[in-house]
Design a protein around this nucleic acid. Structure first.
Lengths: 170, 170
DNA sequence: GCACGTGATGTCACTGTGCGCCATCACCTA
DNA sequence: TAGGTGATGGCGCACAGTGACATCACGTGC
């Protein structure tokens, strides 16, 4: 990420990244599938945590309540590292390829949440829609949180955004 | 698309594509930014049509009603070419890079719709949320339509999915 | 009819990504 | 001590994508 900030994502070559990390490009590609992936190494952990939160929601919870539990977990997961997230997001926002990769990670997250809902007995297309809209709320709230001058609580912004969605579709 | 179906996206080289089209790889790259973009050439037209539909919704329409008008327009735009859409979607689904590109096209669409809503006086984050969820409904409905054995009307499936979303967040 | 500009295409050379294959080296175990 | 294993490096390669320059067809003005 240092190099991506210094020179921009496109200008930084894998050889340079590897050199700074004290290894060769060949080894870099054994740890990361491509140049983009290095910025998304933690996304599998995040996804696992959200799915676990969704699954441990009470059996009586509605689909959107289960999704809300996952969003709470996301806030806890990301809420601590605001400065890091801001830097990372600035790098991603500056490059189209990185934005693409971010979107597919979120799509995978949505798929995983939809799977979790189906395991809870929620039928399609309800499961897909709940997961997709949950991720949409996450995305909007996360972006607002990063740009919020008062650095308000991420969890709070998540809840507000979810309420906003409910008002919209009412 | 022929070649992507025959050999798969990764196996098809730009040189082969260009040869089949009767030109050189260099010329291909003057028309398309990269190998993926050739499958998304029509997306700008779709986006323009949806934004126009959103803008021409009555001033009294709520944000979600304006988005629904755009979804109707999308159904009219895509509803005629189901077989083509199925082939195209199969190619995209088979390759991660193409899925990434599709997602960023949909994200651009969402941004454009959010801009249109803001021009209608809708404030953020309401505008972003309405646009994001509208695109989520579009995505879910489109996928259902492609896989629907009875080949039901796309517009009808769009409306059903939107109703489903309303029920979810109620 | 001729010179000139313009736009589309081709050719060439080059950088960088990503991968297959093999060699090397450290470390562990029978 | 011999052999297995996992991480790394080195090398070559196919291909994507770009910049620079040449070529060619075409109008357009003189």
């Amino acid at each position: 990420m240092e190099l991506y900030i210094e020179k921009g994502f496109e200008q930084a070559t894998v050889a340079e990244i590897a050199e700074r990390a004290g290894l060769t490009a060949r080894t870099f590609f054994r740890y990361f599938a491509d140049k983009r992936e290095v910025l998304f190494a933690g996304s599998a952990n995040l996804q696992d945590a959200l799915v676990a939160a969704l699954e441990s929601a009470p059996a009586t919870a509605s689909p959107m309540e289960a999704v809300a539990a996952a969003l709470d977990r996301a806030a806890a997961f990301l809420g601590e590292a605001r400065e890091f997230s801001q830097k990372r997001q600035a790098v991603i926002a500056a490059n189209a390829e990185l934005r693409e990769r971010e979107l597919i990670k979120l799509a995978h997250l949505s798929d995983a949440l939809a799977d979790g809902l189906r395991r809870r007995g929620v039928a399609d297309p309800r499961a897909s829609l709940a997961a997709e809209t949950g991720v949409a709320v996450f995305r909007v709230a996360f972006e607002r949180w990063l740009g919020d001058p008062g650095s308000r609580d991420l969890e709070q912004i998540m809840r507000e955004s979810l309420d906003e969605l409910k008002a919209l579709t009412a």
